[in-house]
Computed example of a mutant assay.
Amino acid sequence: MPRVVVFDEFGGPEAMHIVEEPALEPSAGEVRVRIEAFAVNPLDQMMRSGTSPVPIPLPHARLGIEGTGVVDALGPQVTGLKIGDPVILTAIPDASVRGSYAEYTTVPANRVIVRPASLGGTEAAAIWVAFSTAFGALVEKARMQPGDHVLITAASGSVGRAAMQIANQIGALPIGVTRHAAKKDDLLAAGATAAIATDQTDIAEAVHHHTGGTGADIILDLVTGPGQQDLLTAARPGGTLVAAGFLDPRPTPFPTGAPLTIFSYRSFEHTLDDVVVKRMSAFLNAGVRLGALQPAIDKVFTLNDIVEAHRHFEKGPHTGKVVVTT
């Protein structure tokens, strides 16, 4: 029978175990997907450890908000898809019930998109959450335009790298921020027009240098916490800050300083919107076809090694996604 990763109590990676369950038949408007690969995300770790902002019902909770596979069965009233279509899962809001850490799952048909032909399973498993988060924050929220200077924190991570690639595809100018000077060359190679190491220089001074004194038009803050105040001094008056991460668990002070438009962003805001997902899918296909969007892979595990995959993920930080194949 198909295998599924579940956990019956909150805890470390060892709380997860594999069980065998029959594959469910898709209901009306749903498809069943044979999962080929999925990626590990911070929300998975939060759900498993009991720190998720959303209550997780125990026992027998599942994990996984990202994955790719092949349509295996169609429920009644499903159109536009056929059995055998390679797809990417775009949203699994009830991941504790039908998460992607499994060999099969069922999802509403409007929660998958056809996978770009040139993307393999491992790459497709690693691209959507990072890409859709960055696209939603920069394009849908901040209305990024060609020529905008875009300051991106945690730029070495998967969302940061996707943000730099999307900015380049549009014609904006991404400025990558890292805590370590040793990562600057890597950021430049990944598409940053400039790289700032906070262990080496003052961020506001560096940003004003790289923007000719005007400051950043858009700031994508994937860290938040007390350091956000330093970012505000790097923005131009009237600019935009999008807080889309939570890498620093400390409280974020109330923003002060220059007048800015400030958004708090979570990707489900747009990945549950069919119209926006259609735009995302078109942009993704174009970027992959042109070679502008390429997910970074840190390490690949098999489903049998899911505990080790989470242990590796928790060691962080990584320069790409941790992917698990089934």
Rank of each mutant, 00 (worst) to 15 (best):
M47K: 05
S132V: 10
G67L: 05
R289T: 15
D85V: 12
A195E: 07
A130L: 07
R62Y: 02
D305E: 15
L89I: 14
L138I: 11
P174A: 02
A91W: 05
Y101E: 13
P226C: 09
T252C: 01
T201W: 01
K315N: 07
K315Y: 01
A243K: 01
T325A: 04
G75V: 11
A167H: 05
R161V: 13
L74S: 11
K183S: 12
E25T: 10
A134M: 10
A39L: 05
L260G: 01
F246W: 01
R98I: 12
G171Y: 08
I113R: 06
L222M: 04
E21V: 02
L24A: 06
T214P: 00
H17Y: 08
S52G: 03
V307K: 06
K184W: 05
I166T: 05
V159C: 05
I92W: 01
S52D: 13
G239V: 07
I113L: 11
L303G: 11
L220F: 04
G213D: 15
G191F: 03
G136N: 12
I83N: 10
W128H: 07
D273S: 06
Q165N: 04
L232Q: 03
D274T: 14
L220S: 02
R32A: 03
I219D: 04
V323A: 11
H312E: 08
A95N: 06
Q77E: 15
P26L: 10
A134E: 06
R161T: 14
I92L: 08
G147D: 10
A39E: 08
D273Y: 06
P42Q: 07
L89N: 00
G69S: 03
V275W: 14
A155H: 08
T252H: 00
A102H: 08
A134D: 09
H270W: 10
I218W: 02
